[in-house]
């Protein structure tokens, strides 16, 4: 059993990544908002829309996609799919993707995680 963690820099890819994962048979995932360290420290520099930046901060958040995958083959497939969907994680600087082994899973199981 593996946990797949993908910190996606540009949330415009989110829907596509999720759809692609669903297509290859990853049954579920959780999505979290997160802020990068540098993002947190640096303030947005406004030009035309300062009002927005003082109230909401105009930088979009990163998204963390979190999923538990039972089978090694599916995991490999998921990694390849994500890479393809965002046009090469490394090439496009589109976040960080890593996996962790999962020892215990208590709860409804990976099939329903995130639903």
């Amino acid at each position: 059993m593996w946990a797949l963690v993908y910190i996606l820099n540009e949330d415009r890819y989110l829907t596509e990544v999720l759809e692609a994962l669903l297509e290859i048979g990853v049954p579920g995932a959780s999505i979290l908002d997160s802020v990068g360290m540098l993002q947190f420290l640096s303030q947005e520099i406004p030009i035309f829309a300062g009002f927005r930046s003082i109230l909401k901060g105009s930088k979009p958040y990163n998204k963390i996609i979190l999923s538990v995958i039972r089978d090694q083959e599916l995991l490999q497939q998921a990694l390849a799919t994500i890479d393809l969907t965002v046009g090469g994680i490394e090439n496009g600087k589109r976040g960080i993707l890593f996996t962790l082994p999962v020892e215990h899973l208590i709860g409804p199981g990976p099939e329903t995680l995130g639903d």
Partner: peptide, 11 residues
């Protein structure tokens, strides 16, 4: 009123 230098100053 430009806000760029304002934001940079406040940083």
């Amino acid at each position: 009123t430009g806000q760029t230098s304002m934001a940079l100053w406040m940083q």
